[in-house]
Computed example of a mutant assay.
Amino acid sequence: MEKRSNWHYMRKDKFLLLMMVPMVVLLFVFSYMPIYGILIAFQDYKIGMPFLSFDGTTKWVGFKHFIRFFDSVFFDRVMRNTLLISLYTIVFGFWIPIVFALLLNEIRRTFYKKVVQTLSYLPYFISSVVIVGIVLSLLSPVDGVINNIIEFFGGDRTAFMNDPQYFKTIYIITGIWQSFGWGSVLYLANIAAINQELYEAARMDGANRWRQMMHITLPGIMPTVTIMLIFAVGGLLNADVEKILLMYSPAVYDSADVIGTYTVREGVFNGNYSYAAAVGLFVSVINFIALILANTISRKVSDYGLW
């Protein structure tokens, strides 16, 4: 059989390749070209200065900005808040889409299944600005529904959004509500790909639906669960900065201020571009190390991984 050249397959799939071009261009422009800007993390950069020059214009300062961040009075606070919010999100939110997908798969009536799916997906497509607006309205100390209920049962009205002890709870709950439906899509797709003959054989052996779920469905989606967990650990120092910026105020900085919001303040508002770039690079390095460790441990424990 004659071996076909790569050009043959490229001509055959030319329309699919053309469809990829816009995404490749966007990826290159917004993900790879900005890497060049990492250089300013090791400089005292000001607007208008070149990123790289050999005439002395570029002011190299080595690890000055990294050391400044480690010595900052805000370092402990932003690291603690970032880690806690990420860990709480994983611990309390990671498993909910999995359970929801397993339960949704057990609904036999197509109409009810589609209604539940649609209702669970909707919050994901709502803007964070709208989501935060709804939360602020519900938790308003003046006429919020939650405070009205608390007062009805004899409690005192509380300014939840101005109380540091409630911020993380509100953030986690709203995040789960907004994303669990959409997060279940990947698991439902994996469940649909499981060989149906396995279920037929299990039923013939007398396995009920619970046993089928535990011994066929769950193991069938376990590779995907593992990969998604690796990605979650790889983003350990990431948080939804846009949502936090919309939710927080100086009153809750002690529990709400994360690395992302701190970087925005320093880089955008204070004009410390090199310092903000150094903090961002530090976060990227830590996330990369966490991703490598999570993948390595997963390979040793479950034989599943990204590579």
Rank of each mutant, 00 (worst) to 15 (best):
M1D: 04
M1I: 00
R4F: 02
L18P: 06
M20T: 07
V21H: 06
L27G: 11
F28D: 03
Y32C: 10
I35M: 15
Y36S: 14
I38M: 14
A41N: 04
Y45R: 09
K46W: 02
K46F: 08
G48D: 12
F51L: 15
F54L: 12
D55Y: 04
G56M: 08
T57C: 01
F63M: 15
K64P: 07
H65A: 03
F70K: 01
F75R: 05
M79E: 09
R80H: 07
N81P: 12
N81V: 12
N81M: 10
N81W: 09
L84H: 03
L87R: 01
L87T: 11
I90V: 12
V91S: 05
I96S: 12
I96K: 13
I96E: 13
I98R: 02
V99D: 05
L103V: 08
L104A: 10
N105L: 09
I107G: 11
V116E: 05
V116L: 14
L119F: 13
S120T: 14
I126M: 13
V129A: 11
I131S: 04
S140N: 15
S140L: 07
P141C: 13
P141W: 14
V142M: 02
G144H: 09
N148A: 11
I150E: 09
N162T: 10
P164A: 13
F167W: 11
F167L: 14
I170C: 10
I170N: 05
I172C: 04
G175N: 01
I176S: 08
Q178I: 06
W182K: 00
G183C: 06
S184P: 12
L188R: 00
N190Q: 14
I194W: 03
L198Y: 15
E200S: 10
R209S: 14
M213Y: 02
G220W: 04
P223S: 08
V225A: 06
A232L: 03
G235I: 14
G235F: 11
G235L: 13
N238G: 07
V241H: 07
E242A: 11
E242D: 13
E242M: 08
S249M: 02
V252C: 08
V252H: 07
V252K: 09
D254G: 05
A256W: 04
A256Y: 05
G260V: 09
T261M: 05
V264F: 15
R265V: 06
R265F: 04
E266K: 15
N270R: 13
G271T: 09
S274A: 01
Y275W: 06
Y275I: 01
A277I: 05
L281I: 11
S284G: 13
I289S: 09
I289F: 12
L293C: 13
S298I: 00
S298M: 03
R299C: 00
R299A: 00
K300L: 08
V301L: 14
Y304M: 08
G305V: 08
W307L: 05
